[in-house]
Design a protein around this nucleic acid. Structure first.
Length: 506
RNA sequence: GGGGGCAUAACUCAGUUGGUAGAGUAGCUGGCUUUUAACCAGUAGGUCCCAGGUUCGAGUCCUGGUGCCCUCACCA
């Protein structure tokens, strides 16, 4: 990568210093206001002295007059600099100004001959930061998807819509946080470095602590720590947790992503279902998806999704019967379906009557994902999952084949997963041991988290818990086809020509 | 990891059958006191992703590599 200092701009930088101006002053003028606020309040503010600060993104110059487009976080406002209104020193700075520089302008708020609200600089014009790299093309901006992600800072300042979408993301998360706080939840932080990984099925990133000489894993889920807090008597907890899964990348997968997990004592999965619905609706409202008549609608990948509550609810077994065409407990019928639907499935040749519960129901779930999930555009809550594939969920008291668990589907993606949390320490231990013994599953936990079992042995109150995939939810709410467009800095391989130091053995 | 596509100036993009590397914007110089992608004149700017090969000659054809995109697999 060549040095990103444009020679012409280095000259302008020297010119600025020649004029006695600091190209990187520490302080900006006081009393700075946002352009959008000034435009909104123009009727009351016309003729007043105001100060704006921002990046110069456009310039139309006339020798003794210049129009500047000044962009701040609120948007664009025009500054007008005229030779006969400014001091000679300030006007001379225009010669050293380039697009991309930050400036402040103090002067009269008024309209131009064409009627545009502008700040007519008179008492001050200052270059606040000299840019040494050219901004992108003014009309098309930065268009290359790779460069937009690698240089998000450029993408953000050169494309108003991109910046607005990322600000919407933070508003969505704030709205969800507000829902938790209204319900008496406490926001907590739990470890990212885990000696034993668990709480989900996924391959972890492995790291190493030098001083302790121990292997650690980046968390794949915060679940087991959050539930320890229920044992400790913190009855409502949530964490917006960055988690890490060592798997492939795709338009829906980034190695690190954000989920919110939340746990509440003295409720169950149906309580979590109600809260999840509220959270999704609050996020959708924050994204501006609510119409005047109160209906909420998201457009995603060319499809329209009605997010006006209540969302559809359907039992797992009922959905299976409806979309797969057979009773999921009918092993012979399920295997017939397997032969038709997934002939390459590894359990295809097994005798279903002899199969253990876990292997059988995992196969049922493979069919569910193939036949049922694809038929559920959502928003929909699917509830009462097979207990055998739910190691952390409480089995139903009525029929232990099923567990008190739901998943939430929207836009063809699984966005949330919730249970009545399993708090029987003996049953939990047995399920953990069964998982660890399953050497065929590369994503099974490496060892039993005995400390978690011990925590349960002290007693965890009955509780509901849920995890929501924040990035995917935001994809739907902001109509972004790829997860990269909702992550400020999605994972990228090293840029060509910037990596491999000599001596790196392969 | 498999299959397909793309890579040319700071940015957006052209580049004919294999025959001297192009435009617009941004930049630089000059002009211009009401513009909205301002305008006019002039000017500079390139490891055509990287490494090989074919050829008198490669941005163009071939092989390998790298990055990105799409897709499949795994997963949320």
């Amino acid at each position: 990568m060549t040095a990103p200092f444009h020679p012409d701009r280095l000259q302008k930088l020297a010119d600025l210093r020649e004029l006695g101006a600091d190209p990187y002053p520490a302080r900006s003028p006081e009393g700075r206001e946002l352009g959008a606020d000034l435009i909104a309040a123009f009727a009351q503010r016309e003729g007043q002295q105001v100060t704006i600060c921002g990046r110069v993104t456009g310039r139309r110059g006339y020798g003794k007059l210049a129009f500047l487009d000044v962009v701040d976080e609120s948007g664009r406002i025009q500054a007008v600099l005229q030779k006969d209104r400014l001091s000679a020193e300030d006007f001379a700075l225009l010669k050293a100004l380039n697009l991309g520089d930050f400036v402040s302008v103090t002067g009269e708020l008024a309209t131009t001959g064409k009627g545009e609200i502008s700040v007519f600089g008179d008492s001050d014009f200052t270059i606040l930061t000299k840019a040494l790299e050219n901004p992108p093309e003014k009309w098309y901006g930065l268009a290359d998807a790779e460069q937009r992600a690698r240089r998000r800072y450029v993408d953000l300042f050169s494309n108003e819509e991109v910046r607005q979408d990322f600000l919407r993301r933070t508003r969505i998360i704030q709205a969800m946080r507000a829902v938790f706080l209204e319900h008496g939840y406490h926001e907590v932080e739990t470890p990212v470095l885990h000696p034993i990984y668990g709480g989900a099925n996924a391959r972890p990133f492995v790291t190493h602590h030098n001083a302790l000489d121990m292997q650690l894993y980046l968390r794949i889920a915060p679940e087991l720590y959050l539930k320890r807090l229920l044992v400790g008597g913190i009855e409502r907890v949530f964490e917006f947790a960055r988690v890490f899964r060592n798997e492939g990348l795709s338009p829906r997968h980034n190695p690190e992503f954000t989920m919110v997990e939340f746990y509440e004592a003295y409720t169950d999965y149906l309580g979590m279902l109600e809260l999840t619905e509220q959270l999704v609706v609050a996020g959708a409202r924050a994204a501006g998806l609510e119409a005047e008549d109160g209906t909420i609608c998201a457009e995603f990948r060319g499809q329209s999704y009605n997010l006006t509550p209540p969302f559809q609810r359907v039992r797992y077994a009922d959905a299976f019967v409806e979309h797969a065409g057979c009773d999921p407990t009918d092993r012979a019928a399920v295997w017939q379906l397997l032969a038709q639907t997934l002939p390459e499935h590894p359990q295809r040749q097994a005798d279903p009557a002899q199969l253990g519960d876990y292997s059988y129901w995992k196969t049922v779930n493979d069919l569910f994902e193939e036949k049922v999930e694809t038929a559920l555009p959502g928003p929909v809550f699917v509830y009462d999952y097979p207990a055998a594939i739910c190691p952390l969920a409480k089995p139903s008291a009525d029929d232990p084949v099923w567990a008190e668990r739901f998943e939430f589907f929207l836009g063809g993606m699984e966005l949330a997963n919730a249970f009545s949390e399993l708090n029987d320490p003996q049953l939990q231990l047995a399920k953990f041991e069964e998982q660890v013994a399953d050497k065929d599953d590369p994503e099974a936990p490496n060892e039993v988290d005995l400390d978690y079992v011990r925590a349960l042995a002290y007693g965890m109150p009955p509780a509901g818990g849920c995890g929501i995939g924040i990035d995917r939810l935001i994809m739907v709410l902001l109509n972004k086809d790829t997860i990269r467009d909702v992550l400020l800095f999605p994972h990228m391989r090293p840029e060509a020509g910037t990596e491999d130091e000599p001596g790196d053995a392969e």
